[in-house]
Amino acid sequence: MTQETTHFGFKEVATQDKQGMVRGVFDSVANKYDLMNDVLSFGAHRLWKHYTIATSNVKAGDKVLDIAGGTGDLARAFAMKVGDSGQVVLSDINAAMLNEGRKNLINKGVSGVEFVQLSGEQIPFADNSFDCVSIAFGLRNVTDKDQCIREMYRVLKPGGCLLILEFSKTDIALLEKFYEFYSFNIMPQLGKIIADDEDSYQYLAESIRKHPNQETLKQMVLDAGFGLCEYHNLSGGIVALHKGIKI
């Protein structure tokens, strides 16, 4: 019998092994994750996340689920928007990342956020529970992306908003060349120097290349049932924000 395979960066691996391998990557980078994000993106990840929040249309009293929420950047901003009458759930499949998120939010004085360890492919919440579901820089690590988008659709209320912030494809030739060189030559080296982990950042560069481009991801969102999906290219398309509405 042929074993089902999927990609892990540029490697072809058994489907059931990918989740564990991704977990290994994030276990390794968890305590340096924020620092590495700042260094590798020259701080731009803060602007991308700020734009995501501005686009979310979240208001006081809303219920928000942040999937693969890691160190809690989005959850913190959502918590301020929904206020005491709302609810924010910060979730991640990786316990080490979730612990970092909890520590970060406590250190920054944010209270009221709930923490749940979960897989985006099997979200343990009832149908039509949330006004907004977000996933930032997490979808490319999910083994079955279509299943994850279907699950996010299921837990969203009618009229709810899906936000997918993820690395994508730039069509600016010069930027693409620079980005290619930077991703495969500089990023892993910085990973080695700062986080003592070259392989994880080599995986990061590879996983970005394997991720669906803007139009493909938009179609995946529509195929999952969303009545509307549009995307906003950020930093020339290096990152894209897909916004889906459940109508």
Partner: peptide
């Protein structure tokens, strides 16, 4: 303009 869930979403995708 998409009116839903007690708010309005604005989209530039007019193919809907």
């Amino acid at each position: 303009f998409v009116c839903t869930n007690t708010r309005i979403f604005v989209t530039t995708d007019t193919s809907t």
